[in-house]
């Protein structure tokens, strides 16, 4: 499917979008903290993936999904540069309805807002590293490929992010 999409097959690329849109959108959301910006970043990443598909073929050993995440992160960074600030006031606005129980839903929303705010306060590289490690199960090596840095630097981003979050969210211990 990916090979056909890279060869210029629009239908195959549509299936690639369908397959990757959820993880890529959620990754962009975790970087940007806003549903509308996350949608922009995801669509831009896929558009670049289609337009620059020829350049992917000249990357020996490259992983397609890693490349997509890299494009999504770059698109998110472009949007961040345009907007300058992550819209923290939007926290909680786009969270899905967790269930019918209003009290439990409110508690979950509050917990989610605390975590989202703590992650949003991290520097961008650390935010991306923790989002990729915790929510996308990516290794330090894959994170390094997505962020365009060394594995050692990716591990350092991850370590610093975890250190900051451990202290910030300590009161949420179950």
């Amino acid at each position: 499917m990916i090979a056909r999409a890279l060869a210029g097959d629009r239908e195959a690329f549509a299936r690639v979008v369908e397959h990757y849109q959820r993880p890529l959108y959620q990754f962009a959301y975790r970087l940007l903290g806003d549903a509308s910006l996350a949608q922009d970043a995801t669509q831009e990443a896929f558009a670049r993936a289609w337009i620059k598909r020829a350049s992917f073929r000249f990357r020996p050993g490259a992983n397609y999904s890693t490349w997509l995440y890299r494009l999504a992160r770059n698109s998110a960074l472009d949007l961040l540069r345009k907007r300058r600030e992550v819209p923290l006031e939007g926290i909680g606005r786009d969270r899905p309805d967790p269930g019918a129980d209003a009290a439990a839903a409110a508690q979950l929303a509050e917990l989610g807002a605390r975590i989202e705010a703590a992650i949003a306060a991290l520097p961008e590289e650390q935010r991306a590293a923790i989002a990729l490690a915790e929510y996308e199960n990516r290794s330090a090596r894959e994170i390094a490929a997505i962020l365009g840095c060394s594995t050692r630097a990716a591990e350092s981003h991850l370590y610093r992010a975890r250190q900051a979050l451990r202290a910030e969210l300590a009161d949420l211990r179950a």
Partner: peptide, 19 residues
């Protein structure tokens, strides 16, 4: 513990018509 806490934050689903 950190991983367990972070798992409580769920990002929204992508909108329809993204393609």
């Amino acid at each position: 513990e950190l991983s367990a806490v972070l798992a409580a934050w769920r990002a929204p689903e992508p909108p329809t018509g993204l393609l």
